[in-house]
Computed example of a mutant assay.
Amino acid sequence: MNAHLIELLLLLDACRRGGAHTITAVVPYFGYARQDRRTRAGEPVGARVVAEALATAGADRLVVVDPHTTALKAMSAVPVEMLTAVPVIAAALAEDLPDDAVVVSPDLGAVELAEHYSALLHRPVAVVRKTRASGTNVQADEAVGDVTARPVVVVDDMISTGATVEAAVHVLLARGAAADITVAANHGLLVGDARSRLAKLPLRRVLVTDTLATEKTPQEPPLQVRSVAPLLADAIARLHSDRPLDALLTPS
């Protein structure tokens, strides 16, 4: 990710020095967005640093897909258009989603996202309560909502280490959910041993978008990737013809 960021900064500078009238940086996955505040003394606010660097290098506008925090708008010196890939993933889910399925938020932070999926898929929502001990150690102890004998779709904005998904799946199975579990996330980071961790779970499929490149590995969960290229193309066309982006944006 860091190499791509440096390349983008250099490209922005080249465009600015080349006399471009306006420069829009399309950044499907905005790295460091999770560093949106200081949790202890001495920590950087990475999201602000990256946003300021892009603006300084020459970007007049940023187009991002489902950033981890909407606070990015306040951190950026230039306008930020926050597109959402939720309709893309929801359309893929709807192809074979059982009528009695439940949309599950794996923690309280993803409740609004789960409600967005619920509205598109016309399915009820359940919520798992979790506590995070570390980046790879997550404990979940309760599911709020009826999941007994029902297929579930666990939704989150990203899958990083897979710890949140793993904890949520264990709680859902303990609460009687059917062994018909789908995991959907806008960004598939899949860092560390995330793939092997997910491969050990009874998952029907893991659905992500191509905001980040994914590579096949020996220990592979049932991974499916949907493209956000049409979404980005639509946004770029609208920007260049001065048409509104409302239908493509993350709900506020």
Rank of each mutant, 00 (worst) to 15 (best):
R129N: 07
S134Q: 08
Y117F: 10
Y117W: 04
T136I: 11
V128C: 07
G135A: 13
N137S: 14
R123M: 02
A126S: 07
Y117P: 00
R129V: 05
R129P: 01
A126Y: 02
N137W: 09
V125E: 00
R123V: 00
L121R: 08
G135C: 11
D146E: 11
H122G: 09
L120V: 06
S118F: 00
G135L: 08
T136L: 12
V144E: 06
V144M: 14
T131M: 09
R129K: 13
A143D: 00
P124T: 07
V127Q: 02
P124R: 09
A140P: 01
A133D: 09
A133R: 14
T131S: 15
D141N: 15
Q139A: 15
G135M: 10
D146I: 10
T136S: 15
A140V: 07
V127I: 14
V144N: 07
D141Y: 14
V144H: 12
E142W: 10
R129I: 03
K130S: 10
D141T: 15
Y117Q: 00
G145E: 01
H122W: 08
R129T: 08
G135Q: 10
R132W: 04
N137Q: 13
V125I: 08
A143Y: 01
S134T: 14
E142H: 15
L120T: 05
E142V: 13
R129A: 09
V127L: 07
G145D: 02
P124V: 05
L121Y: 06
V138R: 06
P124W: 04
V138G: 04
D146S: 14
V144W: 07
V128S: 02
H122N: 13
A119H: 07
L120H: 07
A140W: 03
E142Y: 14
N137Y: 10
A140K: 06
V144F: 11
A119L: 06
G135N: 10
H122C: 09
A126E: 01
A143H: 03
D146G: 12
G145W: 03
E142I: 11
R132F: 05
A119E: 03
H122I: 05
V138Y: 03
N137E: 09
S118A: 11
Y117K: 04
L121W: 05
P124N: 11
D146Y: 11
V144R: 13
L120C: 10
R123K: 12
T136R: 14
V138P: 02
P124M: 07
L120E: 02
D141M: 13
G135H: 12
Y117L: 01
N137R: 14
G135E: 08
A133I: 12
A140Q: 02
V144A: 14
N137I: 11
A143S: 11
Q139R: 15
A119F: 04
D146P: 06
L121D: 03
Q139C: 13
Q139P: 03
L121A: 12
V128R: 02
S118D: 00
V128D: 00
T136Q: 12
V128I: 10
Y117V: 01
T131D: 09
T136C: 12
S134F: 07
K130Q: 05
E142S: 15
A143V: 11
T131W: 08
R132T: 06
D146N: 15
A119N: 07
K130C: 04
V128T: 06
L121G: 06
V128W: 01
L121F: 08
Q139D: 12
